[in-house]
Design a protein around this nucleic acid. Structure first.
Lengths: 339, 339
DNA sequence: TTGTACGCGTTATCAA
DNA sequence: TTGATAACGCGTACAA
């Protein structure tokens, strides 16, 4: 690792000159010395020491991507195609802008914040925050923050959120199910917060608009921890005959439940209709192919990174960016109007 | 962001003392001042500035995870459950050891190396390297390197590789297919290098040991780029009737091809048997459930990180660690002995 | 156009 | 047991 000082010594000039060439301050250095330095730099393959640079400039060129994982869902988190595609979108955008990405997964907000401040991270992208998390973060951390999929009215004062029209998506899908003659529709999820709540609300609203009554027993809870999964799948499958359709909060769960159903000789969509939400490869590769609500996850990641980058360059960004959804009708819903 | 200097000033002592307390050099400081400092640290919520620390100690506490993506496969890379689970395993291990992970995806080795040296990364985990890549890296970079799934005899002199008994796994699976009466077995992959080559060799060896002749037309090539995928799927499906079984180089491809087959009215396993390699969620959730070769990807990531950590603490590690595979017999192979 | 000198926050050496 | 002080590599204000 060669340093500027060393280069200056070997070239018989000052560090300032070398530094100026490196930063392309063309006006400040004669074309002659500039050539000389540039050639030398290439020859010795100079790379700046970022730690020193960061220290001198009080910045880091690091953007933190913090995923808050519910302790019981770490495995689940990182396996979810949603998350990997999101990471991909963020990473690509950040890299192309000359920044670096530090990935940090944790269930502890405090830990995330400590991480962020030791590294003096320039900006932060947060995923998986609930309610007050975002606020607690923005109290401590005074630099740009972009959240993904966070539902927190308070939070919106402090950061930009990249969200999705979850409620509308769920509403559209539920309406579609109803249009196909379904009336006994369950909603399957593992919790009722944030995104899941928004989708649940969309579903409920569609029921209401169609004069279908929602009973609390229409909510099917899946328990994603590996130890509990089978048991909860069993319960859900046992109750499946009470419904003609199940609206799942994610493609992952939709495909999971379809596999469980098929194992028990229940056919989709003949015996029961299943729909998902996300439109990822899981549903695309399943047969019958999953009818689902599409969202563009990569765009979500890219938008989050872009928005942060904008803020970093001093531009204002809106408090809320909502990406659209649309229905993708495939083969897991049966039309039961006629029967 | 409070600094040591500031703390020392407010407490009326030297930075050395504060620093000593922070680093728990208990012998060097009286219990009294120690208490005082510790309380103050907690009160002001001190976090060290890593850039400064790194500069002073010439280390970084960063471990780089560099994924070399074939330019045509970026999308594919990040969506592959294999990769996300690997990332998860590495991240978790690194974090628990007090290190930080920097993720960098690129198709350009030079770019990766520049990244690594500007950040003065303490250690490097490489995935997706081919042949000479690893060597080129280890020429430049003189710190611990661990590769994952790299086949490079030369490379093994320079770094530890965390691999898999790919050949054996493929051999076992092919033998199993043969034991079920299959003789016309295709091998499907998108290239014939590295891991894919090893699996291909295992497959060929099993054929040979069973006196089945391998023809070059038994190799089916899938083209993973989104633009080409459908066309290549079409070609493969058209040729499917030439075989009684297809051994796919990954679960991803196995599930992809099964979906394409089903779309064309070809039933698995009745009309043709399909097997995969990896044993990830894609195959587990598919119905019929995929018969495949199991490998423990999370362990691979964890082992890679652990090995690197060992090297970082000065321990020697073997040149090659080979993780085992085993067959997972599920429902995509038909026994055709009787017929 | 080029050079000197200092500061960034931390650790480490050595003296008190 | 504590405290000055010099590194670490870079950027930059200011002087030459």
């Amino acid at each position: 690792m060669i340093t500027i000082k060393e280069i200056a010594k070997q070239l018989n000039m000052s560090t300032t000159t070398v530094s100026n060439v490196i930063h392309g301050k063309a006006g400040e250095v004669s074309p002659d010395t500039r050539k000389k330095v540039e050639e030398f730099l290439k020859k010795v393959d100079y790379v700046p020491n970022i730690s020193a640079r960061n220290l001198a400039q009080n910045q880091s060129k690091i953007i933190g991507l913090a995923l808050k994982a519910r302790a019981d869902k770490y495995e689940n988190l990182i396996m979810d195609p949603f998350v990997s595609v999101l990471i991909g979108g963020v990473e690509e955008t950040i890299r192309n802008a000359g920044y670096f990405m530090m990935l940090y997964i944790s269930s502890d907000i405090g830990e995330i914040m400590r991480h962020v401040s030791t590294w003096n991270v320039d900006g932060l992208i947060l995923f998986g925050m609930l309610d007050d998390d975002g606020i607690r973060v923005s109290e401590k951390y005074k630099k740009p923050i972009v959240c993904i999929d966070t539902y927190s009215i308070e939070g919106l004062k402090h950061f930009t959120n990249i969200g999705l029209d979850d409620e509308q998506g769920a509403y559209d899908m539920t309406s579609y199910l109803i249009s196909q003659g379904h009336k006994k529709i369950a909603f399957l999820s593992d919790n009722t917060k944030g995104v899941d709540l928004a989708r649940l609300n969309g579903y409920k609203k569609a029921l209401k608009d169609n004069r279908i009554k929602f009973k609390s027993s229409d909510f099917l809870q899946i328990r994603p921890r590996t130890e509990d999964l089978d048991e909860s799948l069993e319960e859900i499958c046992n109750r499946a005959r009470e419904f003609t359709a199940i609206m799942c909060v994610s493609d992952l769960y939709a495909v999971t439940i379809m596999a469980a159903l098929e194992d028990r000789g229940v056919n989709v969509p003949e015996d029961i209709s299943i729909v998902g939400f996300d439109d990822n490869m899981l549903g695309q590769l399943h047969r019958p192919a999953l009818t689902t609500v599409h969202q563009d996850v990569k765009t979500k990641g890219v938008t989050a990174a872009d928005t942060l980058l904008k803020q970093l360059s001093g531009k204002k960004t809106p408090n809320q960016i909502k990406l659209p959804t649309h229905l993708v009708i495939r083969d897991t819903v049966k039309d039961i109007k006629k029967s």
